[in-house]
Design a protein around this nucleic acid. Structure first.
Lengths: 210, 210
DNA sequence: ATTATCTAGTAACTTTTGTTACTGCATATT
DNA sequence: AATATGCAGTAACAAAAGTTACTAGATAAT
């Protein structure tokens, strides 16, 4: 595991902390679609994302979903951090958007490392900061943008994190992410295609002007 | 200042930390409507709210506003915390919803106290946690609820934080908070009144079933 | 090969939200 | 007192989003 750690977190953490993480952390490799965390579940370890993309979802009482944001390499789950200070139940769902590699660290170490490692404190604060910013961006989208703009932004975001302008998904899946209906998405996608912003295929969307 | 500190933060912080806060903090009293922080402004000190209510707003490029959440006694501004780790410009606007009393602490102390005081670390993490939860709640509202539900929730929230079921405001003001138009609010308020959930007066709304 | 399921396109319609315009009334200004 | 301004109510209409229903082609299952 130590190589992956060095490679992706070496510039962030002191040698000593890297060593500790290597000691207590466990390596985990998950396939696309794997459910890493679900709403109401108890959190016992926090993930350091080494590769791949994780999508973070919110769900309401009726089971309606909404995509909050994507996590990429170097990110951790800010919601997990909360377990150390407040309620231990997850407020969100985390699904592997692509195959992913993670290092799982027991939450007990959080407080200890916060005390001992300047770099860890910074990492945690940075994570909270990044997540708050992303939540703000999500709020901007749903509060200020219309569905067609949100859709295009979503496609571009997805193309960005997967580093591929060819998106393999269904209209239904997109509708879930944006919390609307399949018919609405089909309609808007068709309009976007007519405007030359995307190209539609079966189970695929090509984003033109990224 | 030390009395206010002892009273509202005494149970949170060690004697030594309280002493430090008392040394470097400055007391501030602001009237209703006072703009404590605006988007794009640089942050030089973080506020510990002693009394009153602060509303935190987001604004888009067109100047359209949206209420994110209220801060109450014992809260601090998580957005301010970010100054120590990332960009130093505020992403939000903070307005005194009621007259308020605050203790302003220079941001330079953040990192020092994070290192030295367990209670401070906890306080900061708790704050981030609370704010993330509130952001989630805000997202739930705008993503999953219709305008009439959001309106009623907003009125109840407002009645809650001000501890008064009589809300003194205008339809226009509410429309700004929820990012919609005055006419829509007037329409929905009338419906809520007919349903017996509120009573309307000039510049005032009484919330019935809290 | 036949059947069933998944996916996408489209039409027709409803509901929700946003917009414009005008009204009367209360309060503030001169 | 006369005038101006701010606030709320309402109607009429437009736009956006949500819903239902049906179609047809692609893929999967038997």
């Amino acid at each position: 595991m130590i190589e992956e750690l060095e490679l992706h977190y070496g510039y962030l953490f002191e040698e000593e902390l890297l060593h500790e993480i290597n000691q207590v952390g466990t390596f985990k490799e998950v396939p696309e679609g794997y459910r890493l965390m679900d709403i109401g579940e108890y959190i016992k370890s926090m993930p350091l994302l080494v590769s791949g993309v994780i999508k973070i979802l919110r769900e309401d009482d009726n089971g309606d979903e909404l995509l909050l944001y994507f996590l990429e390499r170097g990110d951790t789950c800010a919601m997990t951090l909360n377990c150390c200070v407040g309620t231990k139940k997850s407020e969100i769902r985390a699904i592997a958007e692509t195959p992913a590699k993670l290092i799982m660290v027991p939450v007990q170490k959080m407080e200890e490392w916060m005390r001992n490692y300047h770099s860890w404190r910074n990492f945690i604060l940075q994570s909270y900061h990044a997540r708050l910013k992303e939540m703000l961006e999500t709020i901007d989208s749903i509060a200020f943008m219309k569905m067609d703009e949100r859709l295009l932004k979503h496609l571009r975001d997805k193309a960005m994190v997967t580093n591929d302008d060819m998106i393999v998904t269904t209209h239904q899946e997109i509708a879930h992410n944006l919390h609307t209906s399949r018919v609405v998405i089909s309609r808007l996608l068709k309009t976007l295609e007519n405007e030359g912003k995307i190209e539609l295929g079966r189970n695929s969307i090509k984003v033109i002007d990224l």
